[in-house]
Simulated scan of single mutants.
Amino acid sequence: MRVGLGGDAASGPMNPHFGAAMAYPADWHKSSYSGDSPNCVEVRERASGTDVRDTKNREAGHLSFCPSEWAATLAAAK
């Protein structure tokens, strides 16, 4: 895991979770399960992993996870 204060979203040839070709969106987004709640995190997917930030404190930067770390985080959250 890395801590970042910005950066560009990258395009990648493969989605690490599905093995299909895809373009990674540059936009941050939050889960549809969050609804209108301000108490959530936002994510953006990149070829090299996933970035996560606090919706209410975007200026504080973000955490970056490599694909295997992100997959383990999602598996643990289920």
Rank of each mutant, 00 (worst) to 15 (best):
H17S: 14
M22I: 15
P38Y: 00
D51P: 10
A26H: 13
H17C: 07
F65D: 09
N39E: 06
S31C: 01
L63K: 06
Y24T: 15
M22W: 12
D27F: 04
P67V: 00
D54G: 06
A76G: 11
A26V: 12
A21V: 13
V41Q: 04
W28M: 06
G6N: 11
D8V: 14
G35D: 00
A23L: 14
P13K: 08
A72R: 13
M22T: 15
L63T: 04
T55H: 04
P13I: 06
H62D: 00
L74M: 13
H17W: 07
P67L: 00
A75N: 10
S34V: 05
H62P: 00
S48V: 03
V41R: 04
E45Y: 14
C40P: 04
P13R: 10
V3I: 12
D51T: 07
E42P: 01
H17Y: 12
F65K: 10
G12P: 03
F65E: 08
S68E: 13
W70C: 02
E69A: 06
H62W: 08
D8Q: 15
P16L: 03
R58P: 07
C66E: 12
S37V: 03
N57V: 07
A76K: 09
F18T: 15
G35K: 01
V41A: 10
A10Y: 11
H29N: 10
W28I: 06
G7P: 12
D8S: 15
L5W: 08
V41H: 08
N39A: 08
G49F: 00
M14T: 13
E69T: 09
P25G: 15
W70Q: 01
S48M: 03
L63F: 07
A72G: 10
S11V: 15
G12A: 08
G61A: 02
Y33S: 09
S64H: 11
V3D: 08
A60D: 05
S37I: 01
S37W: 01
A60C: 07
A77M: 11
V52N: 06
A10G: 15
V3K: 12
P67G: 05
T55L: 00
Y24E: 13
L63Y: 05
P25N: 13
M22Q: 15
